[in-house]
Design a protein around this nucleic acid. Structure first.
Lengths: 334, 334
DNA sequence: TTGTAAGCGTTATCAC
DNA sequence: GTGATAACGCTTACAA
């Protein structure tokens, strides 16, 4: 059985309070007793119980994380790695809160309070998801990933989705394209909407007209890439390039082009979004917009700790830059 | 501020003890008081503080998870999804314990005890990793993923790596191959060793000879696939098929074959291991061994809860079956 | 500089 | 059936 603070006190011949003061590095402790207590602690391998400590201090040194159930987001590992990086030196651990979604009056807020978490990261949700409002309006520090939720203690971090797509459009224009089509992602999602916005702005930046027949409403999937391509190919005035809201969509486009006996990038330039592993391995390899997923994870925790540590800082927000990765799926227009 | 049990007691006009009994569904409570207390609890949105509860009960309803620092395992999301599935109805939450690896006397065991976790899942470590022994020999229930650690309270879950590779070898034999080469993964890793073992057993099953020149010692990477291919192609008596310990290795093989002006599967059949996303998108698409990563996650938590709930069950072990996924990278031998 | 003792929010053991 | 009250392991006034 692990020793507790009373055992240590007894072994060191001092009071519990003294041990506590040593542990917490309080002043007014004689070097001699401090030394003695430290020795005993080392020998007994004592480590204060952070649960009990949390109870009295009102601080648990625990952050919470809500993930959408059944989320299978390919980047999540990178985000987690980033989170860990910020967590490492902070003394906080991260509690993955599994939602009891069969319970009609389950509440994020109550789950947080019952677990005494000092703040939460929220990822994989949509704006209209149940109970999210309650969380945003609560006093619980929260950072949302990829969702622009703002509250007294709630902020968010996301990639610069708008600028990412604008970069794609600009790049295509630079290599001569003007008939640039767009495959949206799911428009019910925050990032889906932003990327669509980026397309419109990108065209506007360059003085290109917005044509609704050059837009296909998709859902981030490979299938929607295939369907979009079929639609675009049937047009009288075919586009010469397609900007996609996801790499999977772009993969679908490449497949459909191949199926139609046409060449990428010869007959159609294609740009993806995300830079997933597959992007390197398609034929041709995929030019795409890379998200700094590690950075997103890292900053989500960093910002959360900021809210927690500065009682009245305004809820922080962070837009993480993206990067255009040029590979082989785009060609200059002849 | 969230109400506590005393507030509820006062509001319901009963004692704290009574409220506690209601919360915990104890007998010997009149239906009337029970009803009244329940109503107050609902109205006040009361949820017992599980930290305080943990302190007195000696149970925290928390499981821990150790991941190797900076792990970027493509399957981790699926494993986590599986874990969540088992966690969901259990009342447990999962605490991601960030290791303080700059501290020379950091200890998994102490971290667990200080956080009162009731058990841990360990993933991404190698047998010789520091402090792991201490954990295995401790009283803390532990389930290792992909590492055959056994202790009084420690078991493991992993894919059937041996059988997976044996299936590959058998399949190739069935379509006519007898000169079957093998690309190992990192042999310092547990799964790397097992897959190598599977190759040898696979040959033995079929009465095929084991030839050391048909084995390339790699490390799961694409690069080692390229190098292996170059070596195999330089042989007098070239193999007609290569079994790889990873899909990335197989991707390297396909690239190197293309580079050499040879065809897959025409000149060489190739089998991978893992069924990562890319496997569908290589040209040709990759025949491979699929791991049930969701099942691994699911069972890791299930087994852990078993150890926790049955004081003296022998440490459980689980080998999750794999599945051969036939795509286009293998062809019958002419 | 050190020790005593009252909490933190629960549950469990008794009396009543 | 119900209610005091002592724990659980720790921190923190305050007293000594």
């Amino acid at each position: 059985m692990a020793p507790n603070i009373r055992d240590i006190a007894r072994m060191a011949g001092v009071s519990v309070a003294t041990v506590s003061k040593v542990i917490n590095n309080y002043p007014h402790i004689s070097p001699k007793t401090k030394e003695k207590v430290m020795t005993v602690i080392k020998d007994a391998q004592f480590m204060p119980n952070s649960v009990a400590r949390g109870l009295v201090k009102g601080r648990s040194m625990t952050l919470g994380m809500f993930l959408t159930t059944g989320l299978v987001h390919p980047f999540f590992v990178h985000i987690l790695a980033g989170m860990e990086d910020s967590l490492k030196e902070s003394g906080f651990d991260l509690l993955y809160l599994s939602q009891v979604n069969w319970n009609p009056d389950y509440s994020f807020v109550r789950h947080c309070m019952s677990r005494n978490v000092e703040g939460v990261v929220v990822f994989g949700f949509q704006r209209f998801d149940l109970n999210l409002d309650e969380l945003v309006q609560s006093e619980i520090p929260a950072i949302f990933i990829d969702l622009d939720m703002l509250g007294k203690k709630a902020g968010y971090v996301t990639s610069d989705n708008v600028d990412g797509i604008r970069k794609s459009v600009r790049y295509l224009k630079e290599i001569g394209h003007t008939r640039i089509a767009f495959l949206t992602g799911g428009l019910e999602s925050y990032v889906g909407k932003l990327r669509f916005e980026g397309y419109k702005q990108g065209l506007a930046d360059l003085g290109l007209p917005y044509l609704s027949e050059y837009v296909y409403i998709g859902d981030f999937s490979r299938e929607s890439g295939i369907e979009a391509t079929q639609k675009f190919l049937s047009l009288d005035n075919r586009p010469t390039a397609i900007v996609c809201s996801s790499d999977m969509g772009a993969v679908g486009v490449i497949e459909a082009m191949k199926e139609a006996g046409l060449s990428v990038p010869g007959d159609m330039s294609v740009i993806g979004f995300d830079d997933i592993d597959i992007a390197t391995h398609t034929v041709p390899s995929l030019t795409t917009i890379r998200q700094d997923t590690f950075g997103i994870g890292q900053n989500s925790i960093r910002l959360l700790l900021e809210i927690i540590n500065n009682a009245n800082c305004p809820p922080p927000t962070m837009i993480v830059p993206t990067e255009l990765v040029v590979r082989d799926s785009c060609a200059p227009l002849a």
